[in-house]
Amino acid sequence: MRTVKAPNDMSEILNTLTESIKAGKRKDAKAATEQALSENIDPQQILAALTMGMDDVGRRFKANEIFVPEVLVAARSMKSSMELLEPVLAESGYTPDHTVIIGTVEGDLHDIGKNLVAMMLKGANFSVVDLGTNVGAQAFVEAAQTHKASLIGLSALLTTTMTAMREAVALFREQGLAAKVMIGGAPITEQFAQDIGADGYATDAASSVDLARSLVA
C-alpha cells in the first residue's frame, strides 16, 4: 500500500537531504535518500532536493566561500544518493532533459578540472557521458550522436592542446552536430572560444553549470 507523506514530514526529509549534500556528508545523504525512498516520496522531488544542494555548493564555490575539497565531498555525497535514486527514476520513466558529452581533448592527460565540471553538471541534473582524457575529436562526434547529446564539453589545460579544441569544433561543424560546444581550462579565454567557434566558455566548474543551462534554454 502506498502511503502519502504529510507535507511537513516530507519537506523535513528532503531538507535533511539537501543539507547533507551541502555539507558533503555522504552517509547522511545516503540515509536521507533511503528514508525518502522508503517513505515513497516522489523521486523527482528527491532529485530536486539533491540539485538544490549542489546548486548551493556551486554558488558558494563561485563566490570563493568554499574550495575544491568541499565541492568534491558534496559531489561524492550526491553520487551516493544518485546510486540509490537512479534505478527508481529509471523505473518511473524519468530521464534528464539533456545529455552532455565531456572530455579532455587529444594530447592532454589532465582531468581534475574536467571531473569537477562533470560532477557539477551531474548535480545540476544533466546526464553526463565522461569520455575521459586524451579524447580524439571523432570520439566526441560518435558519442554525441549515440547519446543524442545537447552539449559537448571540451577541456584543455595546456597551450599546446588548445589547438585540438579548434580542430574538434571544426569537425563538429563539418559533421553538422546539433550539440552546442562549451570549452574551458586554464589557458582558455573568451576570445579563444570565439575564435574557434565554440558556443560558450566557462571560467570555472560552477560557471559551467550556468553556461550549460543557458545553452540549452
Binding site: 558533503g24 568541499e70 568534491l72 565531498v73 581534475i112
Partner: peptide
C-alpha cells in the same frame, strides 16, 4: 592522488 587527498583533508 589529487582528488582523494583533497577529500582526505576534510575527512
Amino acid at each position: 592522488g589529487v582528488s582523494d587527498f583533497l577529500m582526505d583533508l576534510l575527512e
